[in-house]
Amino acid sequence: MTTLHVINKTPSESSALRDSLIAMSDGDALLLIENGVYATLPAYSEHFSRLTANVQCYLLTDDAQARGLNDLNQDFCGIDYDGFVELSCRYSKVVSWF
């Protein structure tokens, strides 16, 4: 069964991102929301280096724009809340990391 992993903290404020990467299987997806969107800053790119191409990476554009992150990191696909809901349906469960 596939999982949508939702992360809402920066890599420095909690181990949410690190733990979610441990817990990820091929075919899962990762979605950054709230403060999690800061993980798309280039300085944090090494956190994602272990990810295989089989894990899709998304970010919630509402949260990115709110924080002035307008030049979206091309490794992440920007989605809105409707997209968040669609991803929740496409993957067999949602696991939140905070």
Partner: peptide
């Protein structure tokens, strides 16, 4: 181990954090 954690999560229907 970490790979077993991923496998454990994969086999669940619902996860609460």
């Amino acid at each position: 181990d970490t790979h077993a954690i991923a496998a454990l999560i994969k086999q669940q229907d619902q996860v609460l954090s």
